[in-house]
Each structure stands twice: as structure tokens, then as C-alpha cells.
């Protein structure tokens, strides 16, 4: 479903962020993307949702390829993906339900669909009772749940999470992870970047490790070409 083929990404100012990365993520998988800060995790995620394009190689998500995608393909791709970040990226001047509804409104969903769907999503993430709260009135864990509800609004095939637990305490982290597991069990693939190695070991999902822009470990092929590259 997501395929990186010999992907290199060079930024003009900061240099090489990724070097010859090839990987494949299947439908419905739960994958941890790990490695130290600056290793290239976020770059991989940005390449998936076409925030960045590879300098060399090809990124393919579904039937959209980085090599041939045009400007109008980017929104089309992003409606198939949900993205959450460490800093939640909620709109502070809108209520929880307005934040979630926003994702549906911008894709032109009719009002008759938006209301019930927002309620369902908020119930799914355990925030049904906080629909009319403002983000600043919520805890970090709750804010991340709102962000996840928003990411799920367009029924994505893949949920991309960039350090979603980075700002959360242990209890909130466990809650968010449980939520992600539930979402994954319902069939949505999850790609979660984290530098928390303990967490990746504990969960037992597939782990991709990047270091200095290279894929150095893939638990799906522990003796494969990625490992040999170390």
C-alpha cells in the first residue's frame, strides 16, 4: 500500500535527510518508525503525505506516485490519510466538535453527514462529553484524542502519527496507544513515529528503525538488506 523505492531526500540547507530508503507497508499494518531525533522519521512521514517530494527514487501511496502526482492529487491523497502530530495542531478558537467538523467541512461533506459523524468520532475517542469544550480546557491526552478524531474524519486507510505521545505522561500515552490499537483493529493501517524504543518493544508491532537518514532495521526482515546496511 505504501512503497518507498530507493528514496533519497536532500534539503538545500540542511543536506541529506534520507538516503536510498526502500520499504513497503501493507494494508492494515501497525508500524513503529523509530530512531533518534533528526534520524529522518518525520521526513519519511512527510514524504508519505506528499508534504515533501523525494530528490531521488519514488514514493507510492495507493495508486498515487510522487513521480507523477500533480498539485490536485495531493488533496486527493490526504483524504485517504489521517495525520496527527506531537503538538496536536488544533484550532484554539474552536470547540472540540468544530475542530473535528472542520476536517469534514473542508472536503465538502454535507451538514447532514457532519453532525452525526462528529458525535460518533468523539464517542470513539472517548470525548463525547467534551464536544463543546475548547482545546485549552482539555488535558494533553485529550487534545491528542481530538486530533485523532479529526484525522479519522475522512475514514482514512492509513493514520500517520508523528510522535503522538511525545508530550504526554505515561497514563495518557497508554490511553492514546490503546486508541490507536483499536483503530488498527478496525482495519486502518497505523504508522507511528516515536523515539521511545521501550514502547516499540512492549507493543510487539513491526518496527522500522532509521538512523542518519538510512533504514537500519526492519523487524519484518531482521536479516534483510536493511540490517546488512548497519
Amino acid at each position: 500500500m505504501i512503497r518507498f523505492t530507493h528514496v533519497t531526500k536532500v534539503f538545500p540547507r540542511t543536506g541529506t535527510a534520507l538516503s536510498d530508503v526502500s520499504l513497503n507497508i501493507n494494508k492494515g499494518e501497525f508500524v513503529f518508525l523509530t530512531g533518534p531525533s533528526g534520524a529522518g522519521k518525520s521526513t519519511i512521514l512527510k514524504l508519505i503525505f506528499l508534504e515533501e517530494r523525494p530528490t531521488n527514487g519514488e514514493v507510492k501511496v495507493g495508486n498515487i506516485s510522487s513521480a507523477t502526482a500533480r498539485g490536485r492529487d495531493v488533496p486527493r491523497l490526504r483524504r485517504k490519510l489521517g495525520v496527527v502530530f506531537q503538538d496536536f495542531r488544533l484550532l484554539e478558537d474552536r470547540t472540540v466538535e468544530a475542530n473535528v467538523a472542520f476536517a469534514l467541512e473542508v472536503t465538502g461533506a454535507p451538514q447532514s453527514v457532519i453532525g452525526p459523524k462528529v458525535s460518533r468520532l468523539l464517542t470513539q475517542v472517548g470525548l463525547g462529553a467534551k464536544a463543546t469544550s475548547l482545546p485549552r480546557e482539555l488535558s494533553g491526552g485529550e487534545q491528542q484524542r481530538v486530533a485523532i478524531a479529526r484525522a479519522l474524519a475522512n475514514d482514512p486507510q492509513v493514520l500517520i502519527a508523528d510522535e503522538p505521545t511525545g508530550n504526554l505522561d505515561d497514563r495518557a500515552t497508554r490511553g492514546v496507544l490503546q486508541l490507536l490499537r483499536d483503530i488498527n483493529n478496525a482495519g486502518t493501517a497505523i504508522i507511528m513515529a516515536t523515539h521511545d524504543l521501550e514502547l516499540t518493544k512492549r507493543e510487539g508491532f513491526r518496527v522500522l528503525e532509521v538512523n542518519r537518514g538510512q533504514l537500519v532495521f526492519d523487524s519484518a526482515e531482521p536479516n534483510g538488506p536493511a540490517k546488512a546496511g548497519i
Binding site: F49, R72, P75, R76, L77, R78, R79, V83, R89, L91, F102, A103, V106, T107, R150, A151, A153, N154
Partner: peptide, 8 residues
């Protein structure tokens, strides 16, 4: 955020 959720 609009871009992220697929607004044209």
C-alpha cells in the same frame, strides 16, 4: 490544518 485534511 486545511491542507493536512485534504482541502484543495
Amino acid at each position: 490544518v486545511m491542507r493536512l485534511v485534504g482541502a484543495t
